[in-house]
Design a protein around this nucleic acid. Structure first.
Lengths: 240, 240
DNA sequence: CGAGAATTTGATGATGATCAAACATAGTGG
DNA sequence: CCACTATGTTTGATCATCATCAAATTCTCG
């Protein structure tokens, strides 16, 4: 563990926030919940721009975002542009991450903090064992992974058949909905990703992202000042 | 079950093909293997163009392709073009499918046969219970889902940052590699999807797919006669 | 405050979509 | 088995969208 990250025992905090999302203790008896809290008892801080893990790192834990936000990205070992990177995911508080590593025991993408963030660490070996013993937890795990698959496939659909302005509109609405679900304001939020990140995530250039946001602003759909976004007209944004 | 599909008990067949891929019996004792064979003992036939399941159908089984091939697609309940569909996956013999349904108990996409095909049916309730009892099987299940997530995210990357000809080249190489892994010829195969399906899968129009294949043919990279493809120059195809 | 990073905006051009029409192939019924 | 119709494929011509190049401006943070 580098000096730039710290580990702490925080069972109380974890169980009160991220764990509820990650593990959905519904159906777990008090005894199970306390065992689970024991497994998920370490918090890790990641400072803006730092990586929680990188592609190729050995996989040993899942994570749940406790505060802040992260992006996942793959570095495309490709043909001509030797190594452009591509943003594949945007994780907010409560989201689980690290599932990619289960496949071959190594992470397949980088996870980088978009702002100073904290995550709950879930040692996979322990978690897996507990899944086997507690059927509600196993069910929750399977559902979580299935939903991750569906999210990705939604994203594929969006990328493949929407125009640039439609993609941007969807992203804004998606952010809004996700934040609302977490109890934050749905109309006003901060896009932590740079225009470049957004472009990479949506499959377009940063200039097109910028132009699109400017246009939305002029049309009165949103108010965009740098990273801060305010949605003014959900209806028209949806109908784009 | 409609008359166009039939169900049969076929433990022997299933265990000898799809089950090996789906469940990777390594680490299972003889007793476990026989229990598993008992769970996966029904085969279902789907004729070309018919659906194994549709979005919205209640989820109760996973499937493993035993012969033939299928595509998965989502019908995009979208803004202006009221309901275009988008191909999200291409499944070959040995591939698992149906994982999308675990999330909310309903399938989120259609699975349609590209040719007359058969699948092994894996009742999920039984399978899930057995996962809980057999750790090797649970591990296999988790890895399978994780790999599904990674495959999708690869696809996202391809769609978002590759040009049309690069996407087509990747698809051909991907097909070739997957067939080779199954013991089929790597250089010569039949693309069961129509140009329209391919375009939908790769996020471009059928005309562009057709043009690209024609160009590859003229350049001596492949030989394309309708759906039959022969790869003539892997190196140059990779370097596109 | 100052330097590097990020953003905005403009001008231009290439890639791929769209429209259109000829052609091939496969499935169907006489 | 063949003709016929559906469906799928190829190819061409034109045009829109978005990428690229470039430069000015604003933001951020050390």
């Amino acid at each position: 563990m580098s000096d730039s990250t710290s580990m702490r025992r925080r069972a109380a905090h974890c169980s009160s926030c991220a764990m509820r999302h990650l593990c959905m203790p519904e159906g777990l008896c008090a005894n199970d919940v306390s065992r689970l809290e024991n497994i998920i008892s370490v918090t890790r801080k990641i400072r803006r721009g730092e990586a929680l893990f990188r592609a190729g790192d050995p996989f040993d834990s899942l994570y749940a975002v406790r505060s802040g936000s992260l992006k996942t990205l793959v570095t495309h070992g490709s043909s001509r542009d030797g190594g452009r990177e591509r943003v594949t995911g945007l994780l907010l508080a409560g989201d689980a991450l690290g599932l990619d590593g289960i496949g071959d025991g190594r992470h397949t993408c980088d996870a980088v903090a978009l702002e100073d963030s904290t995550v709950c660490v879930v040692p996979y070996a322990l978690f897996e064992r507990m899944c086997r013993e507690t059927d509600a937890l196993q069910r929750r795990m399977h559902r979580m992974m299935s939903q991750a698959i569906n999210r990705e496939s939604d994203h594929v659909v969006r990328l493949g058949m929407l125009r640039a302005d439609e993609r941007v509109a969807r992203l804004l609405l998606d952010m809004s909905a996700r934040l609302a679900r977490r109890g934050y304001a749905a109309t006003e939020f901060t896009m932590r990703m740079t225009r470049d990140d957004i472009g990479s995530y949506l499959g377009m250039t940063l200039e097109t992202v910028s132009r699109t946001l400017s246009r939305f602003d002029k049309l009165g759909l949103i108010e965009a000042h740098g990273k801060s976004i305010r949605i003014r007209d959900f209806e028209r944004l949806r109908s784009i």
